[in-house]
Simulated assay, not measured.
Amino acid sequence: MRKKEITMKFMMLMIPAVYQGGKPAPGFKPDPEKMEEMGRFNEEMGKALKIESLNGLHPLTQGARVSFANGKPSVTDGPFIEAKEVLGGYWLVEAPSKEDVVKWAQRCPADDGDTIEIRQIFGPEDLTE
């Protein structure tokens, strides 16, 4: 009988340099060659880790931000949103350890100035005393 491997869930959050400051060039579209390279990376990582979901996100200039103060929501539509770091995409993965995810993040074909933030997702075991 094979022992079940313990895994944890992690979000890998891509913060691309081109989105820093929230203002990529008007009409920005990802480079097709870069997307192919990222596709190959995702395929290889998917052989080692379980990828539950992954997606790229449109620039913040095309989004909206809902903030809360004094019990009331306030909506700011792009392109008027100011932010220093903006998500450009994410991976939701299962892995035996954070170290495994970090190793894969280091292999990502990221551009200079890009950042990948890795955060473990709370599981039921984290919420009990």
Score class of each variant (00 low, 15 high):
G39F: 07
E33I: 05
E44N: 00
S74I: 10
M14S: 06
M12H: 04
D31F: 01
F28L: 00
V66E: 08
K23N: 14
P16Q: 05
G27I: 00
V66C: 09
Q62D: 14
L60E: 01
L13Q: 10
A69Q: 14
P24V: 02
E52Q: 08
E36G: 10
K23Y: 01
M14V: 00
G27K: 02
S67H: 12
K34T: 05
P59S: 08
A25E: 15
P16R: 02
Y19L: 05
P30F: 10
K29I: 03
G27F: 10
I51P: 06
M38G: 03
F68A: 08
M11V: 07
A69I: 04
K23R: 15
N70R: 15
L49H: 03
P32L: 07
L60N: 02
P24K: 07
G21H: 08
G63A: 11
G22S: 03
A48D: 11
I6L: 00
K9Q: 13
F10L: 03
G56Q: 13
L60T: 06
K72W: 00
A64T: 09
G63V: 08
G63W: 04
E52D: 13
A17M: 02
K47L: 11
L54W: 02
V75W: 05
G22E: 05
M45W: 09
F41K: 04
G22D: 03
M11G: 08
L13D: 06
V75M: 09
I51H: 06
R40D: 02
S67L: 13
S67K: 15
A48K: 15
L13K: 06
G21R: 06
E5T: 15
P26A: 12
H58F: 06
K34Y: 12
T7R: 14
G56S: 14
I51Y: 09
K29S: 13
E52P: 02
A69H: 14
L54V: 02
T7Y: 10
G21T: 06
E5V: 15
S67W: 11
I51S: 02
S74P: 02
V66G: 05
G22K: 01
G39I: 07
F10Q: 03
E43M: 12
T61S: 06
K72H: 07
N42R: 08
K29Y: 00
I51T: 13
